[in-house]
Design a protein around this nucleic acid. Sequence first.
DNA 1: GTGTGTGAACTTGTTCACAGCG
DNA 2: CGCTGTGAACAAGTTCACACAC
Lengths: 221, 221
Amino acid sequence: MARLPVYQRILEELLRSGTSTVSSELLGAAAQLNAAKVRKDLSLLGSFGTRGSGYDVAFLVEQIDRQLGLDREWAVVIAGIGNLGRALARSQGFAARNFRVAALVDTDPDIIGEQIDGVVVRHPDALPAIVEEVPLAIGVITTPGPVAQRVADLLVDAGVRSLLNFAPQVLEVPAGILLRYVDLSIELQVMSFYQARQMDDEAGASMPVIRSVGRSPGSAR
Amino acid sequence: MARLPVYQRILEELLRSGTSTVSSELLGAAAQLNAAKVRKDLSLLGSFGTRGSGYDVAFLVEQIDRQLGLDREWAVVIAGIGNLGRALARSQGFAARNFRVAALVDTDPDIIGEQIDGVVVRHPDALPAIVEEVPLAIGVITTPGPVAQRVADLLVDAGVRSLLNFAPQVLEVPAGILLRYVDLSIELQVMSFYQARQMDDEAGASMPVIRSVGRSPGSAR
DNA sequence: GTGTGTGAACTTGTTCACAGCG
DNA sequence: CGCTGTGAACAAGTTCACACAC
């Protein structure tokens, strides 16, 4: 369920602020969804709530972590060390959780050998060798579009099972490989779509309907 | 509809390769969804297909562009000129379509004044003045989490109607403001969730194929 | 009383299947 | 005859409402 990471973030925030118990109502408010949805979601992890008081925050975090597979460490490889790849390599999003940037690859000889946060950039040809050191779980593609497919193939051949694609390119991967797109251009287009509709609505209707367009993390989100 | 930008990308690819007509079956295969879905989606833009032959690629692109509001230019402001903000400012995702990076803001005095692709970084206090020059449509938040809410408030006050948030922070905005999250940490967690399940399943038999595009949003997103 | 867990109603989105147009 | 457009069946996801545990 795509909402679990959202709950998680909120729960950790609560933990830091010293709250030990939370109701579905509260959690829902923070996640901007209703209490029933929260309860349904959490109930399918098991019955962890206490009727009358709510959920134990620390325990819930632990359960969600386990469910998300965050009790293991995941080795991440970033392919394409341009502006975006560099930014991601340094990003806190990886470091904060059990994701470790284990490898960086690029084809540019000027970039190979460079160190980013202690990880050396290597040539994609080294992927088989890299995998022998550390089994890579997740590949992040931040190359230009035209080479993205080739890179994806290399990563899959090297044994990577999940790909997160930032390149503006629809990729083909074998069945069984998990593929997600994070596409800036698509995000922007979706936004302009809603905004255009909003403007049209305002121009057209004599009774302007305030349309609160829902947020959506992940499915994205 | 969140799939329109995906169709668009494929259609433009087809245009470049000189294809002038396309069936729902083909488009579906390229977008990794079935033909019926494609037809349903396209039918609610109007009846643009020709029975027996398919859709005219160029015409379809134009219709989708109009529907997505890409026939107008959208002024984008990026708030938070760190690694990610810089990468996005230089990104092709903006330049390629009718999104123009009209302003960059940051609070760091060392960064203010810097030029990125011809746009000068200014202080957020200048937002009202910036809006007077160019009405800003979309705000992109690439600040650290803790200041994201403040920045969002500033942007909304300045008249920005849509926000794309890269900060690891759940934001609150007034009704009527469109808010989307692109959260690396959440993307990774979703991946590890599926991958963990996949590993667990492999004791069993099935190989689930999970593919997803964009996000979410939505309430997801 | 308070807040979970869950069946049952409802809504939204997807797939099927086929009539009808080019 | 091929492929669209669409109603009708189906599935998934969301909300409601309430019994019941604490």
